[in-house]
């Protein structure tokens, strides 16, 4: 699956969590720009895991701070 398609699917998933309608680009950060708390992170990660049938372990999550990093990680996990 290519990066654009992956990003499109994740963009659809983030809508209910992006309550302030923050404009999203590769550099957008989850903690800073999107103001995700740990509860939101867990629900958002679970939604992505179920959509792509993958595991994003907490070890991997620790390396992901921005939108672009998330898309890259999912593309890589999906193989």
């Amino acid at each position: 699956m290519d990066r654009a398609e992956t990003e499109g699917r994740i963009k659809a998933l983030v809508v209910p969590f992006n309550t302030k309608n923050v404009a999203i680009a590769d550099a957008t950060t989850f903690a800073g720009d999107l103001e995700f708390d740990s509860l939101t992170v867990m629900d958002f990660v679970a939604a992505i895991e179920d959509e792509f049938d993958i595991i994003i372990s907490m070890n991997q999550q620790a390396e992901i701070e921005s939108w672009g990093q998330l898309i890259d990680a999912v593309v890589k996990l999906k193989g």
Partner: peptide, 9 residues
């Protein structure tokens, strides 16, 4: 530890 950590609801 060094294991992969996977939490669930």
């Amino acid at each position: 530890g060094d294991a992969e950590i996977v939490p669930f609801k």
